[in-house]
């Protein structure tokens, strides 16, 4: 029972964090066809910006300012970098974002050093909120939950209830048609790229002190974010949301489960002392995202909710 409740809570938080990261990537990917390899780097930038801003002011200013800054960096990258490369096709774009990811990585190492920085949870939120089955639950996690849900609602509202959202949704499914209707597609692209990066930045701000802020965080997050986008399906934010939650829950549940292959397949004659039987479910947790990726590409190549083939 305890395991289930805690895994549920932690899984939902991790899932929401993943969604915040991947929603921007889905928007960019489905709209511009750009597989932004540097997306997780913007997540990292968000965490580092917040750390530096927090050093001179406080966490609340960082929470607002850091994503805006990351968004501006993203918009600038689109305007002066990606737009020129766009003319040369997808391979050039791919290589561009690939190079950009390394560039940001190295820049972060030069500016903030190679080891992790001491980016801490603000003291106002650093207390146990409630106690459950003998374990305390930190308030900051609930704060993450609230920020993520707030972002989710805001994103839903903008996309479904505003004119800008209408155009973006149209551009998601029929990018060419939107252009033909006379909208300034390059500007929409720039805004979407900027907004997507800002979302990644926000995930960095609240995820950086929940997890760790170090130069490896982009590399570790990057592949998982791609899995979310592919599993969720191209052009579908709902799909990305489902995939992110599914991944978050599966990964935390796997750690929480205290069973090995021998327990599961004991009826096949597998014993705990054999090589295969000794493998625990918990040790499989890091593998789950990629197992999902492979399976979904085999069974349903357009993803859970996607309407376009990859």
């Amino acid at each position: 029972m305890e395991t289930i409740v805690f895994s549920l809570l932690n899984g939902v938080i991790y899932g929401l964090l993943l969604f915040m990261l991947s929603s921007g990537l889905t928007l960019i990917f489905s709209m511009m066809g750009v597989l932004n390899f540097a997306h997780a780097s913007f997540y990292m930038l968000g965490a580092y910006f917040a750390y530096s801003i927090m050093g001179v002011t406080n966490f609340w200013i960082a929470l607002i300012l850091a994503p805006v800054l990351v968004g501006l960096v993203g918009a600038a990258v689109e305007k002066w970098g990606l737009r020129n490369v766009h003319a040369h096709g997808h391979v050039a774009e791919l290589l561009f974002t690939f190079g950009l990811a390394y560039l940001i990585d190295e820049m972060v190492k030069i500016v903030w050093g190679r080891s992790s920085v001491d980016y801490r949870v603000p003291e106002v939120l650093d207390f146990p909120l409630f106690e459950l089955f003998g374990a305390e639950y930190p308030a900051y996690r609930v704060f993450i939950l609230m920020v993520s849900v707030g972002m989710l609602v805001a994103l839903w509202f903008i996309l479904n209830r505003t004119r800008a959202g209408l155009i973006i949704r149209a551009a998601l499914t029929h990018p060419h048609m939107v252009g033909h209707l006379g909208h300034n597609v390059p500007r929409i692209f720039m805004l979407v790229f900027g907004a997507g990066c800002a979302l990644a930045g926000l995930a960095g701000v609240i995820g950086g002190n929940y997890l760790v802020t170090d130069p490896a965080m982009a590399v570790q997050m990057g592949p998982i974010v791609f899995v979310v986008v592919v599993v969720g399906g191209l052009g579908s934010l709902t799909g990305a949301f489902l995939a992110a939650m599914l991944l978050g829950l599966m990964q935390t549940f796997a750690v929480g489960v205290d069973a090995s292959f021998a327990d599961l397949f004991g009826w096949l004659g597998l014993t705990a002392t054999s090589e295969l039987g000794g493998i625990t479910i918990a040790s499989l947790a890091p593998m789950i995202p990629f197992l999902m990726l492979v399976l979904i590409l085999m069974i349903r190549p357009r993803g859970l909710m996607g309407d376009r083939e990859l």
Binding site: E2, F133, L211, P286
Partner: peptide, 23 residues
């Protein structure tokens, strides 16, 4: 009551492990 190995240097949030220890 528990004998657990986790991946080296890859776990960013030990809370699930800790909750397992508590329970």
């Amino acid at each position: 009551v528990g004998n657990e190995l986790h991946p080296l240097g890859r776990v960013k949030d030990f809370t699930p492990y800790i909750q397992k220890i508590i329970s």
